[in-house]
């Protein structure tokens, strides 16, 4: 059984909502990202989404763009992200890692090499923002053969006719985009999100987690109440921006930076 399935099955069994932080690999440097990943698990993360830096992140808002720019300034490339996962696995065998990013770095590495290296490094899932199902056939197949889940997005604009095929393709979990816009924007309408998620339930048994615009414990709680879990990205990357660019971070700084995840965990657990 895949790590993602283990975690999500377990959560379902225990009535636990999933908490999935997103951070950019190499922001402010790779050693700090590694410390942050372990810190996030301690704070209550179930799965970690690890961003692959890309020069042109056209679906991301300003906060994540700046995180990506910091990582690229340090020369962080896809192969470094793989090494990071491998290092993380030395101490953590159970927390699933999902790589999230844009297609071009993967195109340049080559699909086969990417899938082989990802599997070997301990990656569990992949979410490519600019690779909708219509373009994903080849890479999806290669990842599946390598035992890696491909996670897809559903947006408020997704037409009914496509829901079934997206739900059928997505493995691991389904990522529901809470709003029309980019990462870090403001959510306006919880009612619409709730209605859309219940529509999705007709097509999938998989966990439906919500991302984009969840900025604190309160919004995490409100969103978790109507879904199977939440993704917190920009709000965490905003805290990471305050870290000094040094190889070794004080434990106190890691705790302070990941505090938002701990608070979200607590708020979500209160739901039960």
């Amino acid at each position: 059984m895949s790590r993602i399935k283990q975690v999500t099955d377990n959560a379902k069994l225990n009535n636990r909502k999933l908490l999935i932080p997103y951070l950019v690999s190499g922001d402010p440097n790779l050693a700090s990202t590694l410390s942050l990943m372990h810190g996030l698990v301690k704070a209550g993360a179930d799965i970690i989404e690890l961003g692959i830096p890309f020069s042109d992140p056209s679906s991301d808002g300003a906060v994540i763009q700046r995180g990506v720019e910091r990582a690229l300034a340090k020369g962080t490339q896809l192969k470094d992200v793989m090494s990071l996962v491998r290092q993380f696995r030395e101490k953590d065998e159970s927390t699933p890692i999902v790589l999230m990013g844009y297609l071009n770095p993967i195109e340049y590495m080559g699909y086969e090499s990417f899938a082989a290296l990802a599997a070997d490094s301990g990656v569990d899932g992949v979410l490519i923002v600019d690779m909708p199902p219509v373009e994903s056939g080849e890479l999806h197949g290669i990842l599946k053969s390598a035992g890696i889940d491909t996670i897809y997005l559903v947006a408020p604009t997704t037409r009914e006719a496509r829901l079934q095929s997206i739900c059928g393709l997505s493995s691991g979990y389904l990522y529901y985009v809470s709003l029309k816009g980019v990462t870090g924007a403001a959510i306006s309408d919880y009612g619409e999100i709730e209605a859309n998620i219940s529509r999705l339930r007709a097509y999938t048994q998989q966990p439906i987690v919500v991302g984009f615009g969840i900025k604190d414990a309160d919004s995490a709680k409100a969103m978790a109440a109507i879904s199977d879990g939440v993704i917190i990205g920009s709000a965490l990357v905003d805290k990471i921006a305050l870290l000094a660019d040094q190889d070794s971070q004080d434990n106190a700084d890691i705790v302070r930076t990941t505090e938002i995840i701990g608070l979200a965990r607590k708020a979500i657990n209160d739901l039960i």
């Binding site: 056209s58 679906s59 297609l103 923002v129 600019d130 690779m131 909708p132 219509v134 373009e135 897809y152 997005l153 559903v154 947006a155 408020p156 604009t157 997704t158 037409r159 496509r162 985009v177 029309k180 816009g181």
Partner: peptide, 22 residues
């Protein structure tokens, strides 16, 4: 029909924009 010229072209955008380009 899917917008390709040989291996080139296509529709590589985020899900939010798929409905708009379709």
């Amino acid at each position: 029909l899917s917008g390709h010229f040989g291996p080139y072209g296509g529709t590589f955008v985020g899900e939010t924009l798929i409905a708009a380009v379709e």
